[in-house]
Write a protein that binds this DNA or RNA. Structure first.
Length: 551
RNA sequence: GGCCCGGUGGUCAAGAGGCCUAAGACACCGCCCUUUCACGGCGGUAACACGAGUUCGAAUCUCGUCCGGGUCACCA
């Protein structure tokens, strides 16, 4: 055995398989021409956040639109930062947003597919097999530097204004011999395995990013770490091995990875793999004190996707909003296909924005209002009760006490209406919005409109009571108010009043405001006639009487 | 600091040398419709970061400046 082979046996004595074993175990996928295999590879170091959801969406729709495969893989190689329940939160979160998963982790504790395991902490032997082969070929080597030593080197480089890093003559253990390594190991020293980079910083590599286009960068010459001292691979190495073995065709990930591409391409070449097509997604930004910055899990509540659930944004609305960021022509498409699933949208990576978009909740609200307005009362009832069950128990019990009544409430200005209202963007607004329609929530708060005195208000309500009928349709309902108007010197028609404002105290509309106030305690509401029908005669009379007494 | 990427109204953006007197959407303002509000309709304010080139002609191509973002770990 030569020096390299001895080294390989010394470092990884338990590895007895060869790469060919895995190449055969995970054969090329049998997919139609043009099908793209994409993935999302989250690390369970936190909860599902907007950036991950966005990346998942882009990957999902890329696979869908090419009849490809979208899979999930858990990158849990950093055991120190891992949090409990991270996997469940991310995978189940994707499901809540309707991002279906073809392969890999399909729920918090269930994986499927032929290319697994889909969790890096269970793939140690695979990575080590490839590393061992690299060492055997003299393309990787053990490094015994401590973090203090590395830090010292970095300081020296900085002091001399030299590019920092473990490269060239700074790569201390690059040419370590078997004997040297053996001695250090016998002393109990721990080591990492580094790539013996064949790169030269003077050379340029060029690659065509699926989103950003042509990018040119210096070749990697850094002997970066492949295997950490605990035998677990770094992201870079795991990425190369996994995406090759899982036969990923397109790696669509956050653009913070762009600067690592030279490392990745180099690795694929050295390992004899065909590199995937890369596409780097611009981050979603946030305005912070006038400065744009990447949205942050720590600082921004909306970065954690739980924010949207708590607020009661419908998951479909959030996805639609995200699609408007992902594709500039999505909004036009949506206008033409209001009821279609976003999945049938013809998505094109090349059309994605190359600069990061600011997260705009105002726009989200607009998207949501449009979608929520299209829901039937039954659908709204399902969604709101589901939300309330989790986030507002009190409201939940009110809504479910009498489902028929609740649905009737939601049907106001909704079912069978050509242009439904767009008042509700998120379900947390519903409680206040409908409060006067539920006795548990209703708080009487009559206020006299400023252009009407209490005598007229009282007179109007008293007269109205005598003619009011719960069966009146909209037309008849308003006719009755119009009939009363002249008796109090109010114009029956608004036009009449506008033509001659000095001749009247106001118009029928002003009087309806009094009624509206008496019934709902608000100046602005959906159609009052419908509200009164839902409330029922007894309740309406009761509310009117209470106001009359107070006047 | 080195290396990348980017810069069109407040926001998202269309734009591939003449179709640009720069589209559309959100937001904002006004008017109309109207039982209030909302919806809807009509209209309005508002942008090519700056400077040099190339060209008959530049938002578009080149260079420089400035500004913003990302990245330089045994984190992903």
């Amino acid at each position: 055995m030569n020096n390299f082979e001895l080294l390989a046996e010394l470092l990884l004595p338990d590895i007895d398989k060869k790469p060919e074993y895995y190449e055969n175990l995970y054969p090329a996928r049998n997919l139609p021409e043009g099908a793209r295999v994409t993935r999302i590879a989250p690390s369970p170091t936190g909860y599902l956040h907007l950036g991950t959801l966005f990346a998942a969406l882009v990957n999902r729709i890329t696979a869908t639109s090419t009849n490809g495969v979208f899979y999930t893989r858990i990158e849990d190689t950093d055991k120190k930062r891992e949090i409990e329940g991270g996997i469940e939160d991310i995978i189940d979160g994707l499901d809540r947003f309707g991002i279906s998963i073809d392969e890999g982790f399909v729920s918090g504790n269930e994986q499927k597919g032929e290319y697994g395991p889909y969790q890096q902490s269970y793939r140690g032997e695979i990575y080590q097999t490839y590393v061992k082969e690299l060492i055997r070929q003299g393309l990787a080597y053990p490094c015994f530097c401590t973090s203090n030593e590395l830090e010292a080197v970095r300081k020296e480089q900085e002091a001399n204004k030299i590019r920092t890093g473990y490269h060239g003559k700074w790569a201390k253990h690059r040419d370590i011999t078997y004997e040297e390594a053996k001695a250090l190991i016998e002393q109990g020293k721990s080591f990492v395995v580094r790539l013996k980079s064949p790169g030269n910083e003077e050379n340029k590599i060029v690659f065509d990013d699926a989103i950003k286009g042509k990018i040119e960068m210096p070749e990697n010459d850094e002997d970066f770490v492949l295997l950490k001292s605990d035998g677990i691979p770094t992201y870079h190495f795991a990425h190369a091995v996994d995406d090759h073995l899982m036969r990923t065709t397109h790696v669509l990930r956050g653009d913070e990875w762009i600067s690592s591409v030279p490392k990745h391409i180099q690795l694929f070449k050295i390992l004899g793999f065909k590199p995937p097509k890369y596409g780097h997604i611009s981050p979603i930004m946030k305005l912070d004190n006038g400065a744009k910055r990447k949205i942050s899990k720590r600082k921004d509540p909306e970065a954690a996707v739980h924010f949207f659930a708590e607020q009661g944004y419908d998951s479909e609305c959030v996805i639609d909003y995200l699609m408007t960021i992902a594709a500039s022509d999505f909004e036009d498409w949506r206008r033409c296909s209001p009821d279609a699933s976003y999945k049938s949208f013809k998505f094109n990576l090349k059309k994605m924005s190359v600069s990061g978009a600011l997260f705009d909740e105002v726009k989200l609200i607009d998207v949501s209002k449009n979608r929520v307005s299209k829901l039937s009362s039954g659908e709204l009832y399902e969604k709101i009760t589901a939300w309330a069950k989790e986030f507002d128990k009190d409201f939940y019990s009110i809504l479910t006490k009498n489902p028929q009544y609740s649905k009737a409430v939601f049907a106001i200005d909704r079912d069978g209406v050509a242009k439904p209202r767009k008042d509700i963007a998120k379900f947390s607004e519903a409680k206040d919005y409908f409060s006067y329609l539920f006795e548990e929530l209703y708080v009487p708060c009559f206020q006299l409109p400023e252009n009407i005195n209490s005598y007229d208000a009282k007179a109007f309500l008293e007269k109205y009571k005598t003619v009011y009928s719960a069966d009146d349709d909209r037309q008849e309902w308003f006719n009755k108010i119009k009939t009363i108007a002249p008796m109090l010197n109010f114009a029956a028609e608004t036009k009449e009043y506008k033509a001659n404002p000095d001749a009247f105290k106001g118009h029928a509309g002003d009087l309806s405001t009094v009624l509206r106030m008496a019934i709902t305690g608000r100046r602005n509401t959906p159609d009052l006639c419908s509200i009164m029908q839902v409330l029922g005669k007894d309740e309406c009379i009761k509310r009117i009487d209470n106001v009359i007494i107070s006047l």
